[in-house]
């Protein structure tokens, strides 16, 4: 009897998922388990880069950045450290800047200043941010090698870096790399608003 219920539930869950692969969450963004469409954006040198070209064999971490957000500045060393550590494990990092208030030169010089060791792509007109529902910096999306969203949200639970008790992103990486389910697939933290086109910044 119990087994029957479990089987039935799995079937229903699977069915719903298949019917609704680009499911959206309460904030109008991507839902965990959704398959992300490939995208192509220019990097800070003007070269077109696509998700499928950049992704690692164990997936991709897409992180929304800002050149002026103090929270991003507070996270830059952590981002670079995590990027270096997990690139070695097959996860590629891709930065996205969707801020209408930050021009290409600013984003390029900020990338050099913060020492980002991964490409930063320019999301002109915040098209990708709108499609994915990204609204805050820093905000991360962890995709597996098939571009399925596994984790979305904050990097850890303390922007000051002094009292971190939850390493949301690293924990998600480690679980996934060990072939285990990710216990916490969503987490929010305070950050800066992405300044979108047409907003009074």
């Amino acid at each position: 009897m119990k087994l029957k219920i479990v089987v039935l539930f799995t079937l229903i869950a699977g069915f719903v998922f298949v019917l609704n692969p680009m499911a959206i969450d309460a904030r109008g963004g991507l839902e965990i388990g959704a398959t992300v469409e490939n995208f192509s954006l220019a990097d800070t040198d003007g070269a077109a880069r696509s998700l499928n070209d950049l992704k690692g064999k164990n997936g991709t971490l897409v992180v929304w950045l800002s050149a002026q957000c103090p929270v991003v500045k507070g996270y830059k060393d952590r981002i670079n450290e995590i990027a270096a550590a997990y690139r070695a494990k097959g996860i590629a990092f891709v930065g996205i800047n969707s801020n209408a208030t930050e021009d290409l030169n600013w984003v390029r010089s900020n990338k050099a200043e913060f020492g980002y060791n991964f490409p930063v792509l320019i999301d002109k007109g915040n098209v990708l941010a709108d499609k994915w529902g990204a609204s805050v910096t820093p905000e991360v999306y962890y995709l597996d090698a098939k571009n399925v969203l596994l984790y979305h949200g904050a990097i850890d639970n303390d922007r000051s870096g002094k009292n971190i008790t939850e390493q949301y992103l690293k924990t998600a990486f480690d679980s996934s790399l060990a072939g285990k389910p990710i216990a916490k697939t969503r987490a929010n933290a305070f950050g800066c608003t992405i300044k979108k086109t047409g907003e009074s910044n």
């Binding site: 309460a26 949200g153 929010n188 933290a189 608003t193």
Partner: peptide
């Protein structure tokens, strides 16, 4: 709070924590 996640959710389900 050590649990910003919970605080943000208590304000609104639509909020990802961006300020202001």
């Amino acid at each position: 709070t050590p649990d910003e996640e919970a605080a943000i959710a208590a304000v609104s389900k639509e909020w990802a924590g961006a300020l202001p």
